[in-house]
């Protein structure tokens, strides 16, 4: 059995007394490509932030590499949902990526040569080295998204969290983006949240649907049928306003492979 990267046990989370997530149990093995789908406001971002240690569960435990997430944040890469924050900020592409190399606040925060080499590699991987000196606000949505992926990758993470990574990429750029993710997934465990079902491409190894509750589908392959069902998920959920199972018969049918 592969080493578990993320373990969530009976996790509940409330915000201002409102339950956002309840009874979440999740197990993400090393090398997984998990996509978390669900309607807007269903708790996808909250789920990710719990795994990142940016939020703490009201009840239950979250462990990443067997430890509380905030202790292993140097092994985690994160691409946030909103990449359009602070577009007027006077900062270059390279400097944004270098932020990913900041080490635990030990004062005198200078970037070393290794930091710059790592930043160059990450930017080259995202085909953005040529834009390194450009101001961040001058980039297109797709380029911006790749800058943020570079910032997440520059620290050499073992697990990568992507929140609505497709939001600012046009249809054209998506195929390319999937290729990048596929390549990354050879070495990095990926957890991606999306309300856009299109992310359920061939590379995805497992799917979880979250709408207050979480339904995890552990499967090595995704059939057209599952895709169809998943695609209807948010529509149905919005219509009924209740959490329900989307992926059919996954509940007790473990390990069909």
């Amino acid at each position: 059995m592969p080493e578990p990267i993320i373990q969530m046990r009976d996790v509940w989370f409330s915000f201002n007394g409102q339950p956002v997530l309840q009874e979440v149990n999740l197990h993400v093995p090393r090398g997984d490509f998990l996509v978390v789908i669900g309607p807007n406001g269903g708790g996808k971002t909250t789920l990710l932030k719990l795994m990142l240690g940016l939020l703490y569960p009201t009840r239950g435990t979250v462990a990443v590499f067997g430890e509380p997430p905030h202790r292993v944040s140097h092994r985690i890469g994160y691409v946030p949902q909103n990449v359009h924050i602070n577009k007027d900020f006077p900062v270059s592409v390279l400097d944004v990526v270098l932020m990913g190399r900041l080490r635990t606040g030990r004062g005198w925060s200078r970037h070393t040569r290794q930091d710059r080499v790592a930043a160059q590699q990450a930017l080259e991987q995202m085909q953005l080295w040529g834009c390194r000196d450009r101001r961040i606000g001058k980039l297109s949505g797709g380029q911006l998204q790749r800058v943020f992926i570079a910032r997440a990758l520059v620290s050499g993470p073992e697990v990568l969290f992507l929140d609505e990574a497709m939001a600012s990429i046009d249809a054209q750029g998506r195929g390319e983006f999937y290729d990048i993710l596929k390549e990354l997934n050879r070495t990095v465990t990926i957890v991606a949240a999306s309300h856009d079902m299109m992310i359920l491409s061939r590379q995805v190894k497992s799917v979880a649907c979250v709408n207050r509750e979480l339904h995890h589908h552990d499967s090595g392959e995704i059939t057209q049928e599952m895709l169809d069902e998943a695609y209807h998920c948010p529509v149905d959920l919005v219509a009924h306003g209740i959490p329900h199972r989307v992926l059919g018969l996954h509940a007790d049918k473990k390990e069909d492979e």
Partner: peptide, 23 residues
Amino acid sequence: TYYYNDFLAMSYDDEFARLRNVP
């Protein structure tokens, strides 16, 4: 000057900065 990079990270994206253990 001492905290320049940390201030930069905090000002640009405080959430990410937190994740990188910036105080």
